[in-house]
Design a protein around this nucleic acid. Structure first.
Ligand code: NAD
Ligand code: NAD
Lengths: 216, 216
DNA sequence: CCATTCATGTGAATAGCTTCACAAGTAAAT
DNA sequence: ATTTACTTGTGAAGCTATTCACATGAATGG
């Protein structure tokens, strides 16, 4: 029976991968949990705990082998392979995402684009011809798409997601600010930028230095 | 002494605000924690707990007054006012963010843009003239900027953040995939889209239905 | 070869967050 | 006025995540 890995632990694995990539470029042979922790502002114990749920990768007294651990984490995260990704809604944010090279580097290949705007359908974005949203179910299946990115207005997102789910896609990354309903076997993540700005304003209002006098 | 509010609780406040806005548009007078919970896939108890750290806003037997609670949460989150925001790096993602109307609606006004590309400096984006990055410190101070969005390549992000911090800005939203160092009194949030895709691939690899047979 | 230093891996302890469960308050119907 | 149906607000319980602390093992230097 596999142990359930927490969401935060998964996210930290991404950080470790990123840090290890940098250490590798600087020709480090090994790196300790202490060094990794400093780099990503975490605690050494947490890094060791996180890694220990997947095996023993380090050497006592020495640390972790950079290259090897990086590959191991890539395999754990599933970024040692290629993922077939489609994106729906080639507007402001959609276009930015299609141009983002980092995705490709981590194995996420955007190979299909969908929109409902006649001016966009048939046009070429980074070598991909934009398909008509009408054909989405058929084309997702044909291209064997595994992950779909949603970057359409919130009002139409649920309808599109229903189609995407019906086409058998099991993983969705949503940029529309709306709580989408998907079946239990579909993994949904939301990217909500307003939320992060609101986090900042909350802290500015409630915890910034000037307010301290009120707390006495 | 103020009680420390958890990050997840702050994020949920944003969800409540969004849900209440919808309920308000549908002319609901009141809404129960149960209804809110269903809307955002949370538990009623959690919503009541979250709200209770800021006061008693509901009426037993009836629920919460939609309009009033929405305003109250807006005030708690600090989105009942206007924030002066600057954005650095008018590339793919930067341009998308400048065009994003949702930010404005929640009080985040992007009023300054910076870049180091001569072709972009002086050009007009949504009514804002792009400034030379060289003058960032002076112009941030002059315009009394409170929040800065970083959308430059990771390699130059730390340098820019150092300037931003020196100019007295206390809140930063970073899109570059790098761990930026800021003093303790500066609030930093990172928006990392690769991380979310990696979360999806992790779950596809580790928990999707097809793998279940391996777990027996 | 032995002492010293370093750093992992992991149970145990602690801290933090979520859910439970219920007393208490409100509204509406009769 | 009383009953019924509802829903809040909140201590307490339960659960999850993080940190502590140390036994264990590896490398280095004299
Ligand atoms: N622009 C941003 O920086 C930003 C940031 C965060 C979130 N978002 C969210 O991302 C989504 C898109 O934002 P945007 O700024 O890119 O908007 P946009 O209007 O520029 O793009 C939306 C695209 O979706 C297409 N579209 C509309 N209805 C469709 C349908 N039924 N089927 C297929 N395509 C359809 C449009 O033709 C357009 O190309 C929105 O939900 C927005 O809230 C945007
Ligand atoms: N494109 C995306 O969808 C996306 C998604 C997530 C994160 N990001 C991150 O956002 C950042 C920007 O990505 P992008 O795709 O928009 O890249 P981009 O190259 O299109 O844009 C970068 C912009 O920054 C400007 N710039 C470069 N150096 C600068 C400096 N020293 N001072 C001021 N401006 C400078 C460039 O002129 C350019 O306009 C990167 O860190 C990237 O990893 C991008």
């Amino acid at each position: 029976m596999k142990k359930k890995i927490s969401d935060s632990s998964i996210h930290r694995l991404s950080l470790y991968f990123r840090a290890l990539s940098l250490f590798e470029m600087e020709n480090y042979e090994t790196v300790s949990s202490k060094e990794l922790a400093k780099h990503e502002k975490l605690t050494p114990a947490q890094i060791r705990k996180d890694l220990s749920s997947f095996g023993s990768f380090g050497t006592r007294g020495l640390g972790y082998p950079v290259h090897e651990l990086k590959n191991k984490i890539a395999s754990i995260l599933g970024i040692d392979r290629s993922w077939r990704v489609a994106l729906v809604g080639i507007g402001n944010i959609g276009s930015a995402l299609v141009s983002y090279k980092e995705f490709m580097k981590h194995g996420f290949q955007i190979i299909k684009l969908f929109d409902n705007d006649q001016r966009k359908i048939g046009s070429n974005h980074k070598g991909i011809i934009v398909s008509d949203i009408k054909n989405i179910q058929q084309e997702l299946k044909e291209s064997n798409i595994q992950i779909v990115i949603i970057s359409v207005p919130a009002t139409v997102a649920q309808n599109i997601v229903d189609d995407v789910v019906e086409a058998g896609v099991k993983a969705i990354l949503n940029f529309a600010p709306i709580n989408l309903r998907v079946p239990d076997d579909v993994i949904l993540r939301n990217e909500n930028m307003s939320m992060e700005l609101e986090y900042l304003s909350f802290n500015l209002v409630n915890y910034s230095q000037e307010d301290d006098i009120e707390e006495v």
